[in-house]
Design a protein around this nucleic acid. Structure first.
Lengths: 300, 300
DNA sequence: GCCAGCCATAACTAAAAGTTATCACGCTCA
DNA sequence: TGAGCGTGATAACTTTTAGTTATGGCTGGC
């Protein structure tokens, strides 16, 4: 293998430039003999003489000149690498793979993407939208860097950063507007439309009603919050959606939304990442941006 | 300045490839702790973490991936540099600047260039044709690498490699054909046409006649052997030319050539280079090619 | 909760790179 | 031509760096 070092290449370059061992050594901040032996070693490891030494002049050999061209190219790239590291220091750079659960993604991402573009302009953002178990798996495998999910995830090797709590609201046919908000016990009696199995939001809703997730149901599950709301508008039943989805999903449907009485149902959304990931600091910054995007989404 | 070494980059590459300190260390033929500290040092000198270590996996950070791309690029060039040196080993490569005196150049170069092209295909040959003193000066300044001149040059820092001896022949009007060759003493009485001052060949010819170089003459000096031969053909006088020029120069002129009796006048042509030039061996090869080109030129 | 796998750290040794002192060579100049 | 100077190479030694083995500590799986 290549037996030379970057130092030797630097010394070589200096000597090629100065044409004088003493001066090149001074420029390299080492002693002249040190430079001499390094050059000699370099020549030896190349098996070729790089310089022609006469009494008054040190000159590159023709081979040395061809060599110098390539050496300069290499040193240039080495310096560029160094600059690159220095510029990236502490900052999040390059590809950033974020997973988001489906009951958050459509309402948060539009704002989040805009905000991240401003706060981290060099970021190459990749978004993955899928269910929590899959996100966790991909996180553990290193296929994504962080994920926005409902807490807790309770994976020992994942770190969880709580971002915000979001409440659920009841969505019912418009004709029910004015009626008081039902209590959990009453809700169990109503025809509650939910997302299909696998969505954590389904479990969270059922949990509020004190009903087990696995209970057999009537097969009217929807594949998205949007579908559920449309079904409510058609008078098929009622549903619950996260506050954040309210603005988007109920605008065009004939439905009425009402907050539950305390204790309101809800969930904590957080950012999770591998505890071993060294970019924790940067991820906390990202989390902060997510938090800002959420508050803008619910108030706006 | 960049504080890392090529070794560290190699270790980095190995670890990025294997994703496992133990395996990467083995592949790099060092111990695992040695690899660990080298990677740590590299990360420290970059000010950035390159790998994410979890209990079961070692993974590049996003920054590490960007870093790896550049590292591979650098290592590739480093290897290429090594290959380049190994390929050039011992051989003469790149630019080769050869000086030749004017009384040799036109007769030798056509064949020499062809032969060099065959024997040293990678050579980028530059030819300089001028008088000996200038060639010597340019040699000493490192503006040319070697020169073909008449020996001796007697510069202490130049090495002289004798190549061949060439005799001078007399060129006289065609009507003199059949006359015996004149002796040196007779030649002094004839109207001897010579090259203008500065040409070593002039001095060599005068030396044969035992006449000093500086003697005032009649102003009929020619600027090339070709001119001299044409003047002889016009009946203006006689001249001497090197054997090698005979074929080319007398073909189209109405002149007769005759060799002198022993001791024949002549000169030794040689290749000279700076004694400090490390490519002596390669130059001897070149000299051999010149020698072959000459013998082909005189016999052919 | 123990075991196995794996990386980090410590303590030490070997190798490499640097230092100062000195030599040897070749050019310049009296 | 021989003294002196400028310059690179070499020698002897020191410091720094890179490598070794031994060992510790964390983590995930059974």
């Amino acid at each position: 293998m290549a037996g030379f070092s970057i130092k030797q290449l630097r010394y070589f370059e200096a000597l090629a430039l100065h044409g004088h061992f003493g001066h090149a050594a001074e420029a390299s901040a080492i002693s002249q003999p040190a430079l001499s032996v390094q050059i000699k070693d370099l020549e030896q490891s190349m098996g070729m003489q790089l310089f022609e030494r006469s009494a008054r002049q040190v000159r590159l050999t023709p081979f040395g000149e061809a060599f110098a061209t390539r050496v300069r190219e290499i040193l240039h790239r080495v310096d560029a690498l160094d600059d690159f590291a220095r510029a990236a220091q502490g900052r999040l750079t390059g590809r950033f793979r974020l997973g988001v659960i489906p009951t958050i993604a459509p309402y948060l991402l539009p704002r989040l993407i805009g905000n991240l573009g401003k706060s981290h302009p060099r970021l190459d953002l990749h978004v993955r939208e899928t269910l929590t178990p899959r996100l966790v798996q991909e996180l553990l495998q290193g296929r994504i860097d962080t994920a926005i999910v409902a807490l807790p995830v309770s994976e020992p090797s994942l770190f969880e950063m709580p971002l915000f709590k979001e409440n659920f609201v009841l969505v019912r046919p418009e004709k029910d507007a004015g009626k008081p908000a039902p209590r959990a016990s009453e809700l169990r009696e109503m025809r509650l439309l939910l997302l299909e199995e696998g969505h954590c939001f389904r479990d969270q809703a059922l949990n509020f009603c004190n009903a087990p997730s696995a209970v057999p149901r009537d097969g009217l599950d929807g594949s998205s919050l949007s579908t559920l709301v449309q079904m409510v508008g058609a008078g098929i039943g009622v549903t619950m959606i996260p506050e954040m989805a309210m603005g988007v999903e109920t605008r065009s449907a004939q439905v009425n939304c009402v907050a539950f009485d305390d204790p309101q149902p809800g969930r904590t959304i957080g950012l999770v990442w591998r505890a071993s990931n060294p970019l924790a600091e940067a991820f906390e910054e990202i989390g902060e941006v997510v938090r800002q995007s959420e508050s803008a989404a619910t108030t706006g």
